[in-house]
Amino acid sequence: METNIIPRKGGFNFDNYKRNLFLEQKGLTLPKVTKTGTTIVGALFKDGVVLGADTRATGGSIVQDKDIIKISYIAPNIYCCGAGTAADTLFTTALISSQLELHRLTTGRQSRFNSAETMLKQLLFRHQGHIGAALILGGYDINGPVLAHIYPHGSSEHHPYITMGSGSLAAVSVLETRWTKNLERQDAIDMVKDAVEAGIFNDLGSGSNVNLVVIEKNKTESLREYSKPTPHHPKNCDYKYKRGTTAILKESIKDLVVVTDGEAMDIS
């Protein structure tokens, strides 16, 4: 019994796997996980890279979260958009981000885009597509701005503009129309914003707001809620219940002790 409570050092745990197979054989269907159901976009411009994402998370047809952040921090000069199984994208990027941080502390140098890309794709390849993370990685290092997409099976490609997720079909039309070489910064931001909005309005899996990250040489700017194309209209009246509406059978109140810091002891 003790073996189950000793903290593990890391890695995945398959203890429940057999049992879940057994439950499946008994006719239980596995529940849904939260998907990003996403529109994510990335584009290179004259001297940097813009990443953009919508903010909707779905579980089946339910909107689980209206304001999720899909652009994860990898390093100060590298960010990553995630599509697919939400938990996978979040944990995968967090894992690589922490490894890069340690690497930077060891070497004292800026993280290279290639390191992040290789570490991500090797992790994904190792798990043979079972980690459902589809990523757009953008960064700026000594080689200038770079943009790549990484598929769940571990393949990656570099492109000047990329979109992924269920809204990519809508977004790609905007990119195909508007992307040119050496775009100005603001033009690139506007284009990415419009591409994500195309996903928000035309793809049911994408919605809510547009988050952007602009990475340039020695400068990264995070533009949260750069555009809010679907504002929530406040209610004109409220539905507040009168106090005493709910019938109570039993009540117990636990008073908490409020601890305040006292005067520092005089040690002069």
Binding site: T246, A247, I248, L249, E251, S252, K254, L256
Partner: peptide, 11 residues
């Protein structure tokens, strides 16, 4: 709340 935890069983 910061001061107390109120637990109520509902009918």
């Amino acid at each position: 709340t910061p001061e107390r935890v109120i637990t109520r069983t509902l009918k």
